[in-house]
């Protein structure tokens, strides 16, 4: 934590008349939520280590509007989207990477129809790319032999059929990857999607995140790996509810990679 993070902004690049290779879309959770900020920083450490030419929007970034859209507020979504698209196009952004599958899905699938055409990557896809191109090599042995189970985020998995990238990245840790009984296309939601994160659940007999945590507990993991800040919150709450926080860690794929490297 001692070294300072290098986080240039698009505005700074522009002032120097330069263009970064990639825009890191931090997202609202990644910017403000205490737990998610750690994921953001871990990912930046990876970007710094791999000497990726990237920038963030900083205070120019605004909500993608994804959660408003899923709550039914198409107006607010399109207001956000069109404002964002205007700015992204002005910066001539070509490639975007984000740690939030909801932003990923929204930018990738819903912005093109409103004039925003970019290549959008989830951070696990980008890390995979860095490893494959040799820009990043995993040397640390911190997770060797550990039991890791990956919880598929709905908006990366079912919504965009990306099941492999996070698993391939985790494979580099030399850990023991174990699958929950329901995984990939049949993975159970963590309960946060569709704006549920921002409201109390409807009446029922169990919270969804508890059910999903039970799925994970059944395979006796040391670590539950996530690829979404909201999933991370939900699973962390689930583990706390089961009083297992001293035995089981809930960590984002980016955090695992960064800490394997002792970054």
């Amino acid at each position: 934590m001692s070294e300072t993070l290098k986080v240039p902004t698009m505005a700074e690049f522009l002032a120097e008349g330069k263009q970064p290779e990639i825009l890191f879309w931090v997202g609202s959770a990644g910017s403000y939520d205490d737990r998610a900020k750690k994921i953001t920083k871990a990912f930046v450490k990876i970007l710094n280590r791999a000497q990726v030419d990237f920038a963030v929007l900083g205070s120019e970034e605004s909500s993608t509007g994804d959660v408003a859209k899923r709550a039914g507020n198409e107006f607010l979504f399109q207001m956000q989207a069109m404002t964002n698209i205007e700015m992204l196009n002005a910066y001539e952004v070509k490639r975007i990477v984000t740690c939030d599958p909801h932003s990923f899905n929204c930018l990738k699938n819903e912005y093109p129809g409103l004039g925003g055409h970019y290549e959008v990557l989830h951070h696990t896809q980008f890390i995979k790319e860095l490893i494959e191109s040799g820009k990043l090599s995993i040397e640390g042995k911190n997770y060797e032999g550990k039991r890791i189970t990956f919880h598929d985020p709905c908006y990366l998995g079912r919504a965009n059929r990306e099941y492999n990238a996070p698993r391939e990245v985790l494979q580099t840790l030399n850990a023991k990857l174990i699958e929950m009984k329901r995984s990939k296309s049949r993975a159970l939601c963590c309960g946060a999607g569709g704006a549920q994160m921002f409201k109390e659940p409807e009446k029922g007999d169990l919270d969804i995140n508890i059910m999903r945590t039970e799925d994970a507990l059944k395979v006796n993991p040391d670590i539950i790996a996530t690829g979404c800040p909201y999933c991370n919150t939900m699973m962390t709450d689930g583990i706390k509810n089961k009083e297992k926080e001293s035995e089981i860690a809930v960590m984002d794929v980016a955090e695992l990679i960064a800490s394997a490297q002792n970054l």
Binding site: V26, D33, S59, E61, V67, Q80, F198
Partner: peptide
């Protein structure tokens, strides 16, 4: 979201504070 571009009541100017 309407007022400060995030689902929580934080100031948009503070978006990069995590750095």
């Amino acid at each position: 979201i309407e007022n400060n571009g995030a689902p929580w009541p934080y100031n948009q100017m503070d978006r990069l504070n995590w750095k």
